[in-house]
Design a protein around this nucleic acid. Structure first.
Lengths: 248, 248
DNA sequence: AAAGGCAATTGATCAGGATCAATTTCGGCG
DNA sequence: CGCCGAAATTGATCCTGATCAATTGCCTTT
């Protein structure tokens, strides 16, 4: 492991100031005044994580929140029987662990780096001060949380009403927004950031089922998979898969 | 129908003032000052609904929120294919439709009176003023929304990892908290507020499956059903059903 | 009391995924 | 280059819950 030095670099690497952070406008922090931002900068801790490294673990007390500075983090949920599902992926500019903090509960999910990435940690006390000082920040979180709630209800609804086939089509279309390269001929190419296992655990099926599902998509000419690269020859065919069932 | 006069009584019936509302301390409104509460009282509209009557419908614009004054309201979600699931039940003292308002979206669920009940409507403009005037109100909603998000994620997770049998046991134990009458001998009796159909749609299965599930519980001596009355002879046997899989 | 309608139950069958087991493929490494 | 171990695929079978169809039970209506 030549990259060992990255391992536990303890504190402030990365942009030492949020002012230079390119994600700032997209985060909830955008409503902070300059003074408040300065306060935040002084209190946050930035740190780098290796791929696969755990950021926090389900059941841990929530001591603060994290802000993804670069790359991506997986939000995962496990149970004692060894079931594991990937609830979502957080990209740069999104805040992590806010649910547990706001609900005043332990973490209900684990967060783990999907590739090497950098996160800022903001401790609970700091966040509390910011929330009390600037009500708009709370309203930002409110909107974010309410949206997430809508999506979570969607997922539940879809999990009991749709087949895995439809849910997979859904997933691919969501992935398209971030990874898709649309071709002029109605085709689409993307390089997914996930293993088959992880793809499977995003829609809540076993890896074997995911394999067969992929096989069926290929046999029917809907999409072709080679490693993590996906080729969708005619996008509208994939869209047809979710026809009447769409409620996104 | 001797109760016809209840039908569309348009406005302020019920406690004309939130001050006398017995639920007040349990709602998010508890952080309002007296002046703010007075403002709220002047703006809210109270109205009675008949059993089965729709309060708002999925897809409607969200013009404000509702506060359940008495009895219960079902939160339901439908799709174009005729699937319908009951996402939850809201009791007196809980606020409805806040998600859509906060996320600034249309309603994603319908709300319908499960029995005759009374609700107050608070229009969006009023709510906005209150939120801006009193940051604590936002924080109240924040906590509520964050908790709901945790529960929604739970439901999703459970829907893909647990069998309907376990999920039904879960549901019964949740129902117990509100409707259960625990006997000294470790037994439990409750009178559920739901039809079989609705029970089924709470865990996302067909009514036939619910019937068979109930049959199995009876055959195994776990619980006995007669109409809407449920008798659980030994509570711990029901609890055993959710053994390792519990994460509530 | 009879009739109608809807909810609930039951039966028979089907299909979608899970599970278990066996290969195969692939990426890293000596 | 060939080896190793993990990931991915494939096959065979099982089991859960859906589906379709028929019957029963209950509650309302007359």
């Amino acid at each position: 492991m030549t990259q060992a030095p990255l391992d536990t670099e303890p504190d402030d690497s990365g942009p030492p100031t949020c002012f230079s952070c390119p994600n700032r406008e997209r985060t909830e922090w955008c409503v902070l005044t300059e003074a408040e931002t300065k306060f935040l900068v002084g209190r946050k801790k930035s740190r780098r994580y290796l791929p696969g490294e755990t950021i926090y673990r389900q059941g841990d007390p929530c001591n603060g929140i994290y802000c993804v500075e670069s790359d991506m983090v997986g939000i995962r949920r496990n149970d004692p029987d060894g079931n594991s599902i990937l609830l979502g992926i957080a990209y740069e500019g999104t805040i992590l662990g806010y649910r547990s903090y706001l609900a005043d509960e332990e973490h209900r999910c684990s967060a783990e780096a999907l590739k090497a990435c950098t996160l800022c940690f903001i401790d609970a006390a700091t966040l509390r001060q910011l929330l009390q000082g600037n009500p708009d920040l709370g309203l930002q979180f409110l909107k974010r949380t309410a949206r997430a709630l809508g999506q979570a209800e969607d997922k539940f609804f879809q999990s009991v009403t749709l087949t895995i086939r439809t849910r997979f089509a859904h997933l691919l279309l969501v992935m398209k927004d971030r990874y898709g390269q649309e071709h002029d001929d109605g085709g689409l190419v993307m390089e997914l950031p996930l293993s088959r296992q992880d793809l499977a655990s995003m829609i809540g099926v076993r890896p074997e089922s995911m394999s067969r599902l992929i096989r069926r998509f290929e046999d029917e000419g809907i999409a072709f998979f080679s490693g993590r690269r996906v080729h969708v020859p005619r996008l509208h065919i994939l869209m047809d898969e979710i026809q009447s069932a769409d409620l996104a």
